[in-house]
């Protein structure tokens, strides 16, 4: 039986401003879900709150993953439990190479399972990393570059997926991994994610573009507006959004449109 990520009535605020106003969502390992919604509706906020960003205050609600109370854990513990977030805007860490970073991340996970663990050997790690880079069509030179420093938008996104591939989480949230990618890069990244898909990986993909959904074929589509999931459905929901935009949904759910 796979693990389940269960979000119940989640309320989150930033600096005292409520952003999420009662989110309910359940993702099982092996399923692919998509989260759509207008700019500023709270999609990234949900992603950060699930991963445990300290600036996001949980005011109410529960998140359970594989039977554990996620909200009581620090970000690193959530990660080691099997949650993963591919960031919409990954930050640079100058002077730390991609390879060094990934090896430390792998070792941190191994050590948490077994305090006696000596860490992955360098040849073994090199083999693993090469294999994952090949899977995603990433140049091997990439391993020696400093994490996200001077990366192009597309390189940042690929690097996030490289981390996903290497760390093998149980549930991964992809926050607009498709934005900023050119058409070929999008195909490569989406193909890469598809290769990782399987009974052991649950995915929540946040996107504005149907093209990404065409590649990933999620079974479930959710629509977020003003901090709530207002509709959930199958692939047809994405079609509706694509043709009619969000306006009919705003009207239907009585959400005020606050465009600046």
């Amino acid at each position: 039986m796979g693990a389940t990520l269960e979000i119940r009535n989640l309320h989150v605020s930033i600096n005292g401003t409520p952003i999420l106003k009662g989110v309910n969502l359940t993702i099982n390992q092996g399923e692919t879900h998509a989260l759509m919604g207008p700019n500023g509706s709270g999609k990234s906020t949900l992603a950060y709150a699930l991963m445990g960003h300290p600036a996001y205050t949980v005011d109410a609600g529960q998140v359970i993953f594989d039977g554990e109370e996620v909200l009581e854990l620090e970000a690193d513990e959530r990660s080691r439990l099997g949650l993963f977030l591919a960031f919409q805007y990954p930050v640079a860490v100058p002077g730390v190479s991609v390879a060094n970073f990934l090896r430390s991340a792998i070792n941190a996970r191994r050590k948490s399972q077994n305090p006696e663990d000596q860490g992955i050997s360098i040849p073994q790690f090199r083999k693993l990393l090469t294999q994952k880079m090949d899977l995603l069509g990433i140049d091997h030179k990439f391993a020696g570059r400093y994490l996200n420093e001077g990366f192009s938008g597309g390189e940042k996104k690929r690097n996030e997926i490289l981390q996903l591939a290497t760390l093998e989480p149980r549930v991964a949230i992809l926050d607009e991994t498709d934005s900023g990618l050119d058409i070929d890069a999008l195909r490569i990244v989406a193909d890469g994610v598809n290769k990782l898909k399987g009974p052991d990986l649950g995915i929540l993909v946040i996107t504005h573009y149907k093209r990404m959904l065409d590649y990933l074929q999620p079974q479930y589509i959710h629509l977020m507006m003003d901090g709530r999931i207002v509709e959930s459905g199958g692939p047809e929901l994405a079609e509706e959004v694509e043709t009619a935009g969000y306006k009919p949904f705003f009207e239907k759910h009585g959400v005020e449109v606050t465009e600046e």
Binding site: M51, D76, F87, V91, V93, F101, S104, A105, A108, L167
Partner: peptide
């Protein structure tokens, strides 16, 4: 930066 690194499992 800290959050990013911690989200990959580093303490």
């Amino acid at each position: 930066q800290l959050f990013y690194l911690m989200s990959r499992g580093l303490s």
